[in-house]
Design a protein around this nucleic acid. Sequence first.
DNA 1: ACAATAGTATTTATAATACAATTAAAAAGG
DNA 2: CCTTTTTAATTGTATTATAAATACTATTGT
Lengths: 239, 239
Amino acid sequence: MESSHRNLTQQVVHELGRKIMQGSYKVGDSLPSEADLCTQFDISRTATREAVKMLTAKGLISSRPRQGIKVVDSKHWNLFDVDVLNWILLGKPDLYLLRHFLQLRLGIEPEAAYLAAQYAQEDELAAIENALARMKDATNGQDDTHEADIEFHQSVLSASNNPFFIQLKNFITTALKVNIRFTNRMIPVTVAEYQAHVDIFELIKNKKPQAAFDAAMITQRATLAIVNEQISVLENKAL
Amino acid sequence: MESSHRNLTQQVVHELGRKIMQGSYKVGDSLPSEADLCTQFDISRTATREAVKMLTAKGLISSRPRQGIKVVDSKHWNLFDVDVLNWILLGKPDLYLLRHFLQLRLGIEPEAAYLAAQYAQEDELAAIENALARMKDATNGQDDTHEADIEFHQSVLSASNNPFFIQLKNFITTALKVNIRFTNRMIPVTVAEYQAHVDIFELIKNKKPQAAFDAAMITQRATLAIVNEQISVLENKAL
DNA sequence: ACAATAGTATTTATAATACAATTAAAAAGG
DNA sequence: CCTTTTTAATTGTATTATAAATACTATTGT
């Protein structure tokens, strides 16, 4: 199961959160009432209510007397919550979702590189370099390469020295994992990609914010263009 | 009071959340135990525990047997949660905080304008135009101008048609409110600023993504430069 | 003296029950 | 038909009891 080590409340949070993010319960739908959830999960009201409160805190549901427990409009969902992102990740890969992730990465990462070039400390530069070394070494398995890739992007965000960018590490990590699901079958991790990462690092290290920004931007616009192209093909087929 | 209409649990969530974000309880600090919170707020364990669970869900605290309730490291805080943002806003204005907000806005908003230029529907364009009209009309009070300004930025995010950007409306709104606290005394809402907004809208309407991006970027880099300058002055005085 | 083990006490986790508050929907009244 | 009142369903809060987890202490054996 994976969730058996967690306490009851958290298991219910995970189960309901997953179902909401995967669309088993849709926006506006009612969840089972407290009483029903108690019997379904075979737990007390205490545990049930605490689970409901946690999902409420994450913006997924509302709970009011007589009205019951309902999935609220998706604009209220805390999409940057680490749990919510993981529940999204459990769903089917979806090109539109991938595009949405890439679009925001395009906003975040070039600017993070810009800030890293301005504010990175020695140890933060070392962390980025370390991730690059891991990427180069990992010639054996794809998994290692991807893990090192994630570490690279995370360390750049850390080097921005901005708490908001740092909090977005969850988001970027999830975005990369969604990306990997597609690219594993379509685009190998190329030497060119690795070199692009090295180039960005060099610009950060040499304190060239604008150049680092541009380099990151170009790489990501190219990736997004590929996905947009794939979506176009798909949509034309559908006609 | 403002919070008297909410239920007990939510009042406690608000009170504790506020204290954590304002630093009354610092990272690593223990909060009072469940039992103590019950007596302090004069409420039952039920309400107390549900409040604790909600703050846990927002990533602010952890709660484990024997160890008690502790404020976790700030990298776990869900800074994009609407409540957390409001609690930040209740604190003292802080130039460094303003800079952090502006830095992320610089990542988000130009790209949002880019996407709006690609994907905005008729009604979404109308919404942006409506906000601009409100900005122009509001010659009487500053509050109206600021409200219309917030509406402008929100409507651009909506027009991006990307759920992640839409979720960031909370963030941008808070960022603008923090900004207003400073600029109310330092920089008046100028005609030039209004014109910059109009220009961006025109580029979005005419489907010029890159131009809209550049226009938004230039405006925001200028604002950030001012703040950076102010911080420099402050830090030099401190020496 | 020290390490491993077992015991103890503190704190949260869960359960069960009772009652209060809210409110959507039905019933009553005009 | 509209307004008001009543009802009933559902969550909100309180209370008590017990279980589980774990930091700390004491014990034991070497």
